[in-house]
Write a protein that binds this DNA or RNA. Structure first.
Lengths: 246, 246
DNA sequence: ACTAATAAGTGGCACTATCCCACTCAACAG
DNA sequence: CTGTTGAGTGGGATAGTGCCACTTATTAGT
């Protein structure tokens, strides 16, 4: 950033928040975590559902991402999710209280051991199911949150085409059919089994768990785990890596 | 965003800025626009080069993007660039004056009719050449701007693999060899002519200009123009669009 | 004029990832 | 033992790309 030296402290600062689009796969559906706005008079959008989020605590949060992690932890107890910045949205009109900027993050977490914790202001938190193939919930959300959710879903869908993202929606150990199903749920369309397996296995993003196999109704399936949970990998080829190096 | 109702006006708000990574192709190189920080005492990073940017003017700018466009216009006179949000960077330490958040945009503009205009505070503005294949300038910049520049270059490179972005670095009318060269400059590697042409033409992102042809030293080349300058197109295939729809 | 040089533009074959379909394999139910 | 179901494999058809050789259009030089 660069400061305009004529105005060391600008007369009016926009206020800054962090909002989270927390997604998981539950009940064979993609679901998003929402919180209910307090019904208190004076509050904007009372009683409406909204994305979880809030102010940056300049005393507590060292960085924007820290702030997002803290809020996620407070709401779900999840410590190490897949967390990515979606973008920031700022305007004079998006919040009736004044010029505001929100930094939106989206998190992918597995549906295991999640205990929803009401926030300090006793929010009601709940999972909402996203219709397959849709990029919205078909209902109003507070502020511009419906648009933020749509942006997150579009980003997720487009990244899924060429990354291993859906693995973060599953428990640490999963089978290939489960992973395939996660792709299908996110993409909203069927995926061909044989091509899917080759693609995923050739990309070497997951590794077989030696002797383990899960007992189910039918033939047991091989279990896998993400190779490097920190970095998500990219498949597909693109422009022509060529053979002359680059 | 969601406001914590216990604190309607938080005690301390971070300050918010917008910074720009303005790129063009000049002199057969990718170049970035930088401004020099004032040498005034009390200013952070006096005399160092920085990305152009500054505070949001809550009275003038309706949205973040408006703010970015305004600053670009003020610096270069360019009205309709390719403009994309890169992300936001916020922390307690990135600016010595306090907790700050910057919204970084990157703009691609053609090198035609650009008159660099010194900012209101008489900044010195200049184009800096980025070494081919590099993601930095090899010198210090003010604040965390070196990191922001690197992020912008990485984003540009990765998007170039599957989009028509480099067309925005050229004048409205260009030849295929010129476009190919722009790709090569951005990617930092050579691109095969025949494959490049097929790829670009098949993607139908550019259209032939009927009878025009440019007079050069050798055989004249066909001129093209972007089909839809608003939306950039994506090539490449990805996960399996299949034929069952989706 | 004719020829050489240079860059624009075209065409074809090999390679490879995907699509799609058929097949085998391992467990369970009756 | 047989049928059913879902896991896992294999192969031919298709399509985008890498690579390379070829043709075309123009200028410079003799």
């Amino acid at each position: 950033m660069t400061m305009d030296r004529r105005v060391l402290v600008p007369i009016e600062r926009p206020f800054v928040t962090v909002d989270l689009v927390i997604l998981t796969v539950r009940n064979d559906r993609l679901e998003v975590l929402l919180v209910r706005r307090p019904a208190t008079t004076g509050e904007p959008y009372p009683g409406l559902w909204a994305l979880p989020g809030g102010f940056i605590d300049v005393g507590q949060d060292a960085t924007l991402e820290d702030c997002a992690r803290r809020k996620l932890r407070e709401k779900t107890g999840v410590e190490s999710p897949y967390l990515e910045q979606l973008g920031s949205y700022g305007s004079a009109s998006r919040d009736p209280r004044g010029w505001s900027v929100t930094q939106v993050y989206f998190a992918l977490i597995p549906d295991e051991g999640i205990a929803l914790r009401p926030g300090g202001n006793a929010d009601t938190a709940a999972w909402w199911s996203i219709p397959e193939g849709s990029t919205n919930l078909g209902m109003d959300l507070a502020f511009d949150h419906a648009a933020l959710l749509t942006a997150a879903l579009e980003r997720l869908r487009s990244k899924v085409e060429y990354t291993s993202l859906p693995a973060f929606l599953l428990p640490r150990e999963f089978t290939l059919p489960e992973l395939q199903r996660a792709y299908e749920i996110v993409l909203g369309r069927e995926v061909e089994k044989s091509a899917f397996r080759r693609r995923v296995l050739d990309a070497e993003v997951i590794r077989k768990i030696p002797k383990k196999t899960r007992l189910t109704e039918r033939r047991p399936a091989q279990l896998y785990r993400l190779k490097d949970e920190a970095n998500l990998k990219t498949f597909a080829r693109a422009f022509g890596q060529g053979k002359r190096g680059g």
